[in-house]
Design a protein around this nucleic acid. Sequence first.
DNA 1: TTGTAAGCGTTATCAT
DNA 2: ATGATAACGCTTACAA
Lengths: 339, 339
Amino acid sequence: MATIKEIAKKVGVSPSTVSRVISDDARISEETKKKVRKIMEELKYHPNAIARSLVSKSTKTIGIIMPYSADQAFMNPFFSEALRGIAKCTYNQGYCLLITNGVTKKEQINSVYSLVMGRRVDGIILMYSKENDPVLKELQNMDIPFCMIGRPVDNKNITYVDNDNIEAAYKATEYLIEKGHKSIALLNGSMNLTVSADRYEGYKKALEENNLSLNDELIVSVEFLQEDGYKGMKKILNSKIKPSAVIATDDLMAYGAMRAIGEIGYKIPEDISIIGFNNIPLSEFLFPPLTSVDINTYQIGASAAQLLLENVKGEVRANRKIVDTKIIYRKSVCEYKKS
Amino acid sequence: MATIKEIAKKVGVSPSTVSRVISDDARISEETKKKVRKIMEELKYHPNAIARSLVSKSTKTIGIIMPYSADQAFMNPFFSEALRGIAKCTYNQGYCLLITNGVTKKEQINSVYSLVMGRRVDGIILMYSKENDPVLKELQNMDIPFCMIGRPVDNKNITYVDNDNIEAAYKATEYLIEKGHKSIALLNGSMNLTVSADRYEGYKKALEENNLSLNDELIVSVEFLQEDGYKGMKKILNSKIKPSAVIATDDLMAYGAMRAIGEIGYKIPEDISIIGFNNIPLSEFLFPPLTSVDINTYQIGASAAQLLLENVKGEVRANRKIVDTKIIYRKSVCEYKKS
DNA sequence: TTGTAAGCGTTATCAT
DNA sequence: ATGATAACGCTTACAA
């Protein structure tokens, strides 16, 4: 494995000259540059990024922090889709992605430490936002650029990308109400996530504005997984009040819900209408094709990377970005019919 | 940002002593250990991984090389599922994941260089296997442990994890033949991928053993994407010979194919049966639920990481692992009926 | 235009 | 049980 020194010796110049050739320093004559480059090729020289990082204090890599374990998180296409956006943006600017995680809270904190304090990354993307997050607190103390996906609980100076989730849930609920539904269930994510809290807020607002009562039995909080959507929907179906429509704040949860609904012999949308969130690419292939709120996940990822990178490079423009949402109308919602 | 030197100064010992405390060296007295640890806590010391890597020549990170751009690759759940398995295994053993890519061939090679020659990773997982792959060639010259997902074209001493794809495709084809199908299309991936070549092989073998003719018009090679499955199926449907069944070597492609089939008014499985590969978790929710060959993607990822890590640590046991496959019978295949 | 030397934060090899 | 010193491979003042 060739080093700068070896190149230098072979060419008959000093190591610093070789270093300067690498950075194409204007002060080095074309002649020596040529000589040096020739030998570099011959010896298949490639700079040692680690050594370089040690002095430059930059690793040209961005750390990704998943909620709970990456093992579980990757089960939801939201994360791969967001990662696609992130990857696209970072690679264009010459950055790598370093992914770590940890199952327990302590492991999570530790992995953040090893990334940040270990100086392995130039910046961090936190893939979620929840209240009282110890990871976030550490990050704020650590003096490293970071960007969150999701609105911070108190957004003092935190760079983030999000949708207007209150508005999005409001519109989704309104849509159902317009279709004549009065008993609308909410299959939501964990309430300590700001995304869940916001969607609950929008749901509530729409109900209240339409003089519909908020019913606790119709509101359930589960993880963003298919299996949890199934269980959550079961619970709703076992309540005394029967909903004629349900809002799932994630398509994956909606899939589980659809299974639960089908199992008791109900038809979608005739017996129960359902609308999802996040518009997973496969939702259009379901039976029936799932109506879903598209939150532009790819764009969220790309914007998060963009904001972060500006931050890293010190060319801060904005410190937040709100990505548009749009209901994709398919076949899982219909007019309410009395039965 | 505290360093070993500062700790040393503050405690009144030498840097090497601090270093020894960190590695819990038996020769350091409990007393000094305590003193040093106290100051480390106070100053919130955390070792600089970069500096450490420079001398230890190990980064405790594994590089992931995607086929073409990660941007595109992440559109197929195969990769996130494999990554899940990889993540699980690597994190358990204290390794991070570094992902890079590049769209053009040259960019790809460059990113591999920057990972390997830049000494940023201790080992590599190549997420695909194709013939005449310049990336593979470089890797072999580079003297770094790596593991491939997919059988190498000539498997001289290359560590890899794969299914028995010939067998898997053979069984899938046999299944269709048993159901009475005689005109079976193959919607395959790019033929320079060994996975595609092997599945073609199994398909061919089953046809031949049953005295069914191989028909070029019924065989199409496209990318492992939904849109490409759609286009490929269109092409097949436009051929003179009408298939009564189709094998898609990836579920995502199958989704596209199903759309193409539906568009010309054919019903699945009555008019055309279809079987996919990879058993994407969502395939059971399609209409009709897609019969698919489950290749145990998560396990493939986990095994690849396991084999690689053994290699990295020098405790090599096996250098290949074949993961089981299994047909998951659902509703997209039925008996052939003359029409 | 090029060379010398210090330094990035560690670890490892000698000494003591 | 602890300290000095060199080394890892590179960059960057400062000299020349």
